[in-house]
Amino acid sequence: MKITLHVNAGERTVDVEPRTTLLDCLRDELRLTGAHSGCEHGVCGACTVLIDGEPARSCLMFAPQAEGYEITTVEAMSPAPGELGIIQDAFCAAHGMQCGYCTPGMILTAHALLKHNPSPTRAEIVEAISGNLCRCTGYGQIVEAIELAAQRLRGANTEAAR
């Protein structure tokens, strides 16, 4: 079936089987491979995208269900091709990743958290990322990366800086 999705502030029309998950649609049809495919049944958070600004698992939604919502993937976190947004940069600076598989989901989850709560406590960060599994880092540096991003974002004064 033909569906039109609002992705990263653009409109994209695709022709997919209804059983195509939003995750597969983003990756295979729209070539937005930042959303990673981990468990594909809602357990790991690697596929996290923002739906109307809030984190959701793109493997737990069929593409036709996503019509009418604003979908944001990690690709939109970078201000320009080849550049990193503040949260992404903080993940590099704090070594908040090893293999990087969980990272797009972590970045988007952190983005939504910091939008609502610019100064989260450590416990609030841990709670926010509790639905995202990381098999490498042990989480410590991810939490530090989000703390660093929060600190830098509080210092930045433009929305574009994210």
Partner: peptide
């Protein structure tokens, strides 16, 4: 109930 991302949907 689940996690924040699942409660959002």
């Amino acid at each position: 109930v689940g996690h924040t991302p699942t409660r959002n949907r």
